[in-house]
């Protein structure tokens, strides 16, 4: 009799805890999380911001949006251009990003909170230079170059790093250099 009562109590406690856990999961699911996405396909065409005999600076703007239902904080954001020397070693490449709404010129990404359904714009700068020679000539055979936009986000859930890729195509580069 005592054992059966004890088992009933334990089962009841486990059931209550299970129900509470399920209710919390349901609440958390309904509350949602942040979901910050770089809209790389909607980036503006690359344009030449500055050019000299040996160096060119290209820029483009990339919109982003928080598609989630909670605030998301972009703690860090940076570009990663992918051009191995086996593929092309004619130029030295640097790239950096900036939040258009809070301009700065040091490549430092200042953490920013993005509310749900809001967004902003990242400005990507790609600087290509040659030691000796003419940058225009050197870039004539430049291949397509992927650039990953890498960003670290934190919110109600664990921090995570995401990547979205855009490609600076040879045609787009040619077009920008012609303007």
């Amino acid at each position: 009799m005592f054992l059966s009562t004890l088992i009933n109590i334990i089962v009841a406690i486990i059931l209550i805890l299970a129900v509470l856990y399920l209710l919390f999961r349901l609440y958390a699911w309904q509350q949602g999380n942040e979901r910050i996405v770089m809209l790389v396909k909607r980036h503006t065409p690359f344009i030449v911001e500055d050019i000299s005999f040996s160096q060119v600076t290209l820029t483009c703007d990339i919109p982003f949006v928080n598609k989630g239902r909670q605030n998301g904080t972009i703690m860090d954001l940076y570009p990663r251009h992918l051009m191995p020397e086996e593929q092309f070693d004619g130029v030295h490449i640097e790239s950096w990003t900036m939040d258009v709404s809070r301009p700065r010129h040091d490549g430092y990404w200042e953490s920013v909170i993005i509310p749900p359904r809001k967004g902003g714009t990242v400005r990507l700068r790609v600087i290509m230079s040659v030691k000796d020679g003419n940058i225009r000539k050197e870039l004539m055979n430049f291949p397509d170059m992927p650039i990953d936009i890498v960003y670290q986000v934190v919110g109600r859930s664990d921090w995570h790093i995401s990547k979205n890729r855009l490609v600076l195509t040879s045609e787009e580069l040619e077009q920008a250099m012609r303007q």
């Binding site: 909670q70 904080t73 934190v154 109600r156």
Partner: peptide
């Protein structure tokens, strides 16, 4: 609430 310092898990 979303604007509180402790709204993030960290």
């Amino acid at each position: 609430p979303a604007d509180g310092s402790m709204s993030s898990v960290y």
